[in-house]
């Protein structure tokens, strides 16, 4: 086993999260190497979205710590400069009075900080990333007038406008046609080529070997994490997808 990779983009230590009485994540220890395209895979209710939200500091864990490139995740200044986030698409009010351009421009807000207005450079950046996702013709559309795939591209563009080092994406392929899916994965690979790290919550097991080079299998706890060719095999998958109850029971 080679342990040559020293540079970790994200290190999760001892992370435990619970919603009221229900444990959602148990003792997660996870290291995500820099410059990888990683999938987070697991059955429904395995805590994939929760893991992502906990890493981003959107919810408070019971115990544990998250570090980004040796910085604690509580360092907000670091977070907003270096972390990009694409939430699940259902989470916003689609009838909000905002155009595609407005939404993508929001990606620049983190760099600007409080009160300061977007500059010319931000506006140019917005158009550049819109072009990158092929949505430049839709810049002035209201967001409810887009198809599911287009909406997903807009949110991707918003994350790109953050010019982050690490990207977190919660099921970017949900409700998206095959063509858009291919386009998005090409874009993600391009981001990876620039030395950036991409973490994707993913559902479709079949495409994992094609799309990703690193994979984390979780079901309440981390079952396995590593390069796809080493980790992504029948044994681990069975461990991941067998019922949550027996998993916990056998361990304690």
């Amino acid at each position: 086993m080679s342990k040559d990779i020293i540079d970790y983009a994200v290190e999760v230590e001892d992370l435990t999260v619970a919603y009221d009485a229900k444990p959602v994540l148990w003792e997660i220890d996870l290291k995500i190497p820099k410059g990888q395209l990683m999938a987070v895979v697991g059955p429904n209710g395995a805590g994939k979205t929760t893991l992502m939200k906990a890493m981003l500091g959107l919810l408070t864990p019971v115990t544990g710590a998250v570090r980004f490139m040796d910085k604690e995740s509580k360092d907000i200044r670091f977070m907003k400069k270096h972390i990009g986030y694409v939430p699940q698409s259902g989470s916003v009010d689609w009838d909000f009075p905002a155009t595609v351009f407005d939404v993508v421009l929001m990606g620049c807000y983190g760099k600007l900080g409080w009160i300061r207005r977007p500059r010319k450079a931000d506006i140019e950046l917005t158009y550049t990333v819109l072009k990158k996702v092929g949505m430049e013709d839709y810049a002035l559309r209201q967001i409810s007038q887009l198809s599911g795939g287009q909406q997903q591209r807009v949110f991707l563009a918003r994350a790109l406008a953050q010019e982050a080092e690490i990207y977190f994406m919660d099921e970017p392929f949900k409700g998206v046609d095959v063509q858009t899916e291919k386009a998005i994965i090409l874009l993600l690979k391009e981001i990876k080529e620039q030395g950036k790290t991409v973490v994707v919550v993913h559902h479709d097991l079949q495409t994992v070997p094609d799309y990703f080079d690193w994979v984390t299998l979780i079901n309440l706890r981390v079952v396995a994490s590593g390069p796809v060719e080493e980790v992504f095999h029948e044994d681990n998958l069975q461990k991941t997808y067998k019922s949550t109850k027996t998993l916990l029971g056998s361990e304690v």
Binding site: G57, R77, M79, K80, I83, S91, M106, Y109, G110, W114
Partner: peptide, 15 residues
Amino acid sequence: KLFTFDSDYAKSLGF
């Protein structure tokens, strides 16, 4: 504007 539209995202940007 950011907060009204998407408060989770606002948090991830440090607001």
